[in-house]
């Protein structure tokens, strides 16, 4: 369902983000994207969400060539994706419930549907008790679970997670990763960028490694091991 076809990204001043990268990710897969800082992981994610366009090559998601989408169609692409960031990106002036409901409101969902769906998702991520709290009243792990709930609420087929455990301690990270694994078991494709050796080694999922914009490793049940 995701395909990178000979994708090259060159930024201003001839900085290469990705260099002729090709790979496929099937529906329902769980894939780690690893590599050093500047290896091209962020470029790959930005291509998936339509934030940047490749200099050459095609990025295909669910049969749609993302780089050929008109700008005004991009929001609809993103509704079929859920994005989870390292810094959670919750709205501080909205409660946990409102933060999740917000993602449904902007897609024009009916109030009735929102009232039915949000509590379900909050209970799935174990935050039913926190529905009326504001982000600054809950822990980092809980905030990340809110952002996962927000990513899930529109039932996306793909979840893109950019270092989701980067700001969390080991124990909380494990809880969040369990949540991702459950979501994956329900059939949602997950593409995750991470720097956590422990997580990659524990999960034993497919690993795609980038180095200076080049794909250097793609193995099933891989380990972290990106070298010094």
């Amino acid at each position: 369902m995701i395909e990178f076809k000979e994708v090259t990204v060159v930024y201003d001043k001839d900085i290469v983000g990705l260099d002729n990268v090709s790979f496929k990710i099937e529906e329902g897969e769980f894939v780690f994207l690893v590599g050093k800082t500047g290896a091209g992981k962020s470029s790959a994610i930005k291509l998936l969400t339509g934030e940047i366009k490749p200099t050459s090559g095609d990025v295909i998601v669910d049969g749609i060539v993302v780089n050929r989408l008109k700008r005004r169609k991009i929001p609809y692409l993103r509704r079929a994706q859920g994005v989870v960031f390292q810094d959670f990106r919750l709205l501080p002036n909205k409660t946990v419930y409102e933060n999740v409901a917000f993602a449904m409101e902007i897609t024009g969902k009916k109030k009735k549907d929102i009232q039915r769906k949000v509590p379900k998702i909050l209970s799935l991520v174990g935050l039913s008790e926190r529905a009326n709290n504001y982000p600054n009243e809950i822990s980092g792990g809980e905030q990340q679970r809110v952002s996962i709930a927000r990513a899930l609420v529109n039932s996306p087929s793909l979840i893109i997670a950019d270092e989701p455990t980067g700001n969390l301690d080991v124990e909380t990270s494990a809880e969040v990763m369990n949540l991702f694994e459950e979501i994956n078991k329900m059939g949602t494709t997950i593409v995750m960028v991470t720097h956590s050796e422990k997580i990659v080694n524990d999960m034993q999922k497919r690993v795609i490694q980038l180095e200076n914009g080049v794909l250097v490793r793609d193995e099933e049940n891989g380990v972290y091991n990106i070298g010094a």
């Binding site: 005004r72 929001p75 692409l77 509704r79 902007i106």
Partner: peptide
């Protein structure tokens, strides 16, 4: 700005 950024990533249209 932060709010706008988040809205964009959740799939809000420019008009919205």
């Amino acid at each position: 700005e932060k709010e706008i950024h988040i809205m964009k990533f959740v799939g809000a249209t420019d008009r919205f």
